[in-house]
Simulated scan of single mutants.
Amino acid sequence: MSDERGTSVIFDLDGTLVDSELNYYEAGRRMLAEHGVMDFSWERHTDFIGISTRETVTTLREEYGIDTPVDALLADKNRHYLALAGTSTTVFPEMGKFVELLHGDGTPMAVASGSSRAAIEAILRGTGLDVYFRTIVSAEEVPQGKPAPDVFEEAARRLGSAPGDCVVVEDALPGVVAARAAGMRCVAVPYVPATAADPAFQSADLLYAGGQAEFSAQATYDWLNSH
Rank of each mutant, 00 (worst) to 15 (best):
T107M: 12
M109Y: 07
A119H: 01
D130R: 05
G114T: 06
E140I: 03
S116R: 01
E121P: 01
F133Q: 08
L129D: 08
R134H: 14
Y132L: 05
I123W: 01
D105C: 09
A110L: 12
V131G: 03
T107I: 11
A112E: 11
T127L: 02
E140F: 03
V111G: 05
G126D: 12
T135N: 14
R125Q: 14
T135P: 10
A118V: 00
F133E: 10
A122K: 08
F133R: 04
R134T: 11
L124P: 13
L129R: 04
T107C: 15
D130H: 14
A112R: 03
V137M: 13
V111F: 05
D130K: 03
I136F: 00
I136L: 15
V137F: 12
R125P: 00
G126I: 05
T127D: 05
G128N: 09
S113T: 11
L124R: 07
G128S: 11
R125E: 15
S138I: 03
L129W: 07
I136R: 15
L124K: 10
L129Y: 07
S113E: 03
G114A: 04
S116K: 01
M109P: 07
A110N: 13
R134C: 00
E140K: 05
A118E: 14
R117P: 00
L129C: 06
A110E: 11
I123F: 03
A119F: 02
E121T: 12
L124S: 10
V111R: 02
A110K: 11
A110G: 14
D105F: 01
E140V: 03
G114K: 03
S115W: 00
V111T: 06
V111I: 13
L129E: 06
A118M: 06
A110D: 13
R125D: 14
R134A: 11
T135I: 15
A112N: 11
I120P: 09
V137S: 13
I120H: 05
G114N: 05
V111M: 04
L124V: 12
Y132N: 06
S113N: 07
R125S: 15
G128A: 09
M109H: 07
G106P: 00
T127W: 01
G128V: 04
R125W: 00
L124N: 12
S113M: 08
L129P: 09
Y132V: 08
T135A: 07
I123P: 09
M109A: 12
A118Y: 00
Y132M: 04
T135S: 10
I136M: 12
V131M: 13
V137T: 13
G126K: 02
